[in-house]
Write a protein that binds this DNA or RNA. Sequence first.
DNA 1: CGACACATTGACCAGACTCAAAGCTAGTGG
DNA 2: CCACTAGCTTTGAGTCTGGTCAATGTGTCG
Lengths: 244, 244
Amino acid sequence: MAIDHPHEAVLRRLGRGAPLSEAERRAVEGLPLRIRTLAPRSMIVHQGDPSDTCCAVLSGWVGCFKILAEGRRQILAFHIAGDLPGLQSLHLGTVDHGIAALTGATVALIPHAALHDLVERHPGVAARLWRETLVNVSILREWLTGLGRRSAYERIAHFLCETYLRQRAAGLAEDGRCPLPLTQTELADALGMTSVHVNRTLKDLRGSQLIAQEQRTIVIRDFARLSAAAEFDPTYLHLPPAPA
Amino acid sequence: MAIDHPHEAVLRRLGRGAPLSEAERRAVEGLPLRIRTLAPRSMIVHQGDPSDTCCAVLSGWVGCFKILAEGRRQILAFHIAGDLPGLQSLHLGTVDHGIAALTGATVALIPHAALHDLVERHPGVAARLWRETLVNVSILREWLTGLGRRSAYERIAHFLCETYLRQRAAGLAEDGRCPLPLTQTELADALGMTSVHVNRTLKDLRGSQLIAQEQRTIVIRDFARLSAAAEFDPTYLHLPPAPA
DNA sequence: CGACACATTGACCAGACTCAAAGCTAGTGG
DNA sequence: CCACTAGCTTTGAGTCTGGTCAATGTGTCG
């Protein structure tokens, strides 16, 4: 589906909240997309490289990250279907972070030039795209807060709440269960901890009956208690009102 | 100066890199600014409030932060003269974080409506403003990386490098010395540590002959070694090429 | 069946936190 | 002009969360 109608994913995301006008819709549909199917762990953009394309995730998980000395890595964001990583580089030219597929994934590459053109002609679309980057920033700020001021236990709980809601909004999750195709090492690199400690903390969360794990999916057994433990407030995700 | 010609600060910032066109310049000068002089610790925007204004810092230090339970606070960004905090809310309506003056400060408040209008008429200005928010995001990502993967020592060293370069680019610092009008508690809340540990770590940095402190200014005694210790790479600040 | 990557567990360690008590310093009011 | 105060900085002693190192399970895929 995503691959047959790649513009759909972008349109759906930009139309979140208020629908696009007919002209805007057509303009977005006119974007030249280059579809790429990616193997797990394949690089999309290298840290520090100049970049002249954005990228829309159609399926799979994509991650942004920075590499430091001594093999340290910080994952800055996870992106799922509908997300637009790489908008960061639109007005900066270079990305100071890498972008890679974490799972098998399909993405659509969009040249900056096409976006600049689109944005110049359709201020309404510009506003949507801008808004989209601002939502990502909002999430980044929440992560920053977690790394700075939340315990490991709260941090993981918070992350799970976030991941569930984001995936549900993208139609990828429901009934308290959602895919979590990440290794504990990846989770650790996102949450500023070690994989060992992620493992122990997940065990604690299972012990508290807050979650359960089944192969690569996570089951949230008690969202209310989990979000209370995490001091989770979904406002920052700026999602449209939840479905009934 | 800043108060006599409040538009200057904004113009200078937006013109960083490539100069604005004459029409764009006039449009920016036409922005309705409401100047406010703020006492230290006074709130500008409350966390969670709807917001219909942006804010340009003319002088002093302004901070963005989130408050958690049990008195925990995470400072998300420091803003100095020329910075535009609150652009975050331009397309979101609410800010999920508070904004406050940390020192005595003067700011110019700009209604969103005026900015939307400006942006619609001048895509070039929109691009500059957008770019400006992207630079802030870039800094946010670097902070995230620091909180997740740098030791306290590296983190403070990194922050000092950043603060010095940003202030120098704003014409507020030179010769390796710059104002640092923050309490150790504020530093701690920004860097995800306790004030006690900030104190001890600053002592270590002084002991290593990397910095010195004089009342409210910091002296960087060896920028090369300091930035090496922090693994600091200024690219993410997206500053114009340094002056000779 | 191996090989390899990932998850899990144990034992031990250390960087950073907590609690608490002094020093400083700048501003205030007598 | 000086004592007083309030807020900040500095230091010490002890604790704890989370990291390190290393071994052992557990799948999964060719």
